[in-house]
Simulated assay, not measured.
Amino acid sequence: AEDPAVPVTHLLAEIREQGYTGSANLLVRYINQGRVEADHAALSPRKVAGLLTRHPDRLNDKHSALRDQLAGACPEMTVLADQIHAFAALLVPSAGNAERLTAWIATTRAADLPFLHSFATGLERDRAAIDAAVTLPHHNGRTEGTNCKIKLLKRQRYGRAGHPLLRQLILLN
């Protein structure tokens, strides 16, 4: 109670002198059961990523407040949240997005976020395709959906029917 920051090893040594025979793990669990920090569950990385990448209009008040708290937790998180928001704005095709993407990559390189550096490198590696994706309104979603459906039909019919029946199923669907 006098020194709440005392290391567990020192505390364990003191109470062992007084006859404590339990383990250090049991002592840590006993100490943590009364702490305020232990009263709430920690956020998983998946939950944090979901909060940071979800559109702000799709968050309820509780999640919006948690997202703002996460974004302001440290300077790196603030920069990360800003970069995610700026990149999400690039995903709506527009004529000036190629220049904005160049500026986004430069800002990302200037930030101290190594995991975003590798993402920016991947974007630069296939720059022509990325520029087309962020500037042109065309996409191949319908073709990809058809391919996915055909693969599903093939998996369902594996070993049960020949090519003519599979062809007929594809044409009927």
Rank of each mutant, 00 (worst) to 15 (best):
T21C: 07
K62V: 13
D61V: 12
R46L: 15
Q83T: 11
Q83S: 13
D3N: 13
G122A: 03
V28Y: 08
A129R: 05
A71N: 03
Q168E: 14
G96V: 12
K149D: 00
R58W: 14
G50N: 12
P4C: 11
A103W: 14
L90Y: 11
A161Y: 14
R125S: 04
L52T: 03
D68G: 06
Q18K: 09
L165I: 11
N32W: 01
A1H: 12
L59C: 03
T53Y: 04
Y158D: 08
V134D: 03
R35N: 06
A24R: 15
A132S: 10
S23I: 01
L11R: 08
V8I: 15
R109S: 01
S94P: 01
R109C: 09
R54N: 06
L101Y: 02
T102R: 14
R167M: 08
T21N: 03
G96S: 15
H40I: 14
R67F: 11
T9Y: 10
Q168N: 10
H163G: 04
E2H: 12
P93G: 04
L101G: 03
A73L: 15
A71C: 07
Y158F: 13
R125C: 05
A111F: 04
G162N: 04
H163N: 09
D126K: 02
R155Y: 04
E124C: 09
R67G: 03
A132P: 00
D61E: 07
G72S: 07
T102N: 13
I15N: 08
H117S: 04
G34S: 05
A103R: 15
A13L: 09
T146M: 01
G19P: 05
T53G: 05
V36G: 05
M77V: 09
I31F: 13
L165A: 09
H163S: 12
E76Q: 14
R142I: 09
P4L: 02
A65P: 04
N97C: 05
Y20M: 02
R167Q: 11
A111Q: 01
L165T: 02
V6F: 02
R109F: 10
